[in-house]
Design a protein around this nucleic acid. Structure first.
Length: 271
DNA sequence: ATGGTTGTCATACAA
């Protein structure tokens, strides 16, 4: 069977519900993982999404900030959320595809929203950056303890780090910019490598080809300037990497009406 | 060196 999983930082699921529905209609992924839903649970637009064919929905939100959700055409079970850094922020959820999901049954899908980290890349001066580094340290500890890659698993999300030189438009100019500082990129690559996650986009499209998934709202002509960063990721457990046929970035969606600043990223597996 | 935009909530704050 072919399994398609999409990750998208939607930056308000209510404001951009028409864009979500368009993505589901045009791309029809089996599973869609959203970040930054910015939506309290009692206002999540479940019925519209169910009508679009995504009957299995799990969300955890809060007023104004953060929030993650998983929408699926395939049944899942065991929805869980983890908290990091002693905060109640809605920055993670996971589900396990259930018996009705055919060859994908048993696969665990983790959806992460790593803190952006503010502007000043010094944890002593900027507590948001300190929080981001602590979050990455706790992700590393979780991988060491829970061993999520020991069975078929996918980790997707807005990790808010562009780890490699060609994950940003200018390596030199961004070395001091939060998202591409050495302390973050090393933390992310260390935890990924140590845990055995495959960076699916980079296995299929090695450097030096540039890959971006995010373009700032502050650039008036973002497409022409193309000063992007690869902040959104698909990581696969080793046993799944061999099944990955493609990782595609739907850059078109960055041009849709009132877009998110992130593009959807879709991995296709042949199981 | 600086400012550039967006969403939420209600006027800054986070991204």
């Amino acid at each position: 069977m072919r399994l398609r999983i999409t990750t998208w930082n939607i930056n308000s699921v209510r404001l951009r519900l028409p864009l979500v529905l368009r993505l589901l209609d045009e791309q029809a992924p089996d599973v869609l993982c959203l970040q930054e839903t910015k939506c309290p649970d009692d206002k999540f637009p479940s019925s519209d999404l169910r009508k679009a064919g995504y009957e299995h929905i799990h969300f955890v939100g809060q007023k104004g900030y953060h929030g993650v959700a998983i929408l699926s055409r395939l049944p899942f079970e065991a929805p869980e959320t983890m908290s990091f850094c002693g905060k109640a922020d809605a920055r993670h959820m996971s589900v396990r595809l259930a018996a009705g999901a055919g060859a994908a049954a048993g696969m665990v899908i983790h959806n992460f929203y790593v803190p952006a980290g503010g502007d000043v890349p010094d944890p002593a001066l900027n507590e948001k950056f300190a929080h981001k580094l602590q979050f990455l340290a706790e992700m590393r500890a979780w991988c060491a303890t829970a061993r999520p890659t020991a069975s078929p698993a996918v980790l997707v999300g807005d990790l808010n780090v562009a780890p490699l030189e060609h994950d940003v438009w200018s390596h030199k100019q961004l070395l001091d910019v939060v998202s591409h500082t050495p302390v973050e990129t090393q933390a992310l690559e260390t935890l990924r490598g140590e845990a055995g996650w495959a960076d699916a986009a980079r296995v299929l499209t090695p450097e030096p080809e540039k890959i971006y998934t995010w373009w700032s709202y502050r650039s008036p002509d973002w497409a022409k300037a193309n000063k992007g960063r690869r902040l959104d990721h698909v990581w696969l457990s080793p046993d799944l990497m061999g099944t990955c046929r493609s990782v595609e970035i739907l850059q078109d969606a960055r041009s849709w009406d009132r877009p998110s600043d992130h593009a959807p990223v879709t991995a296709t597996l042949e199981l």
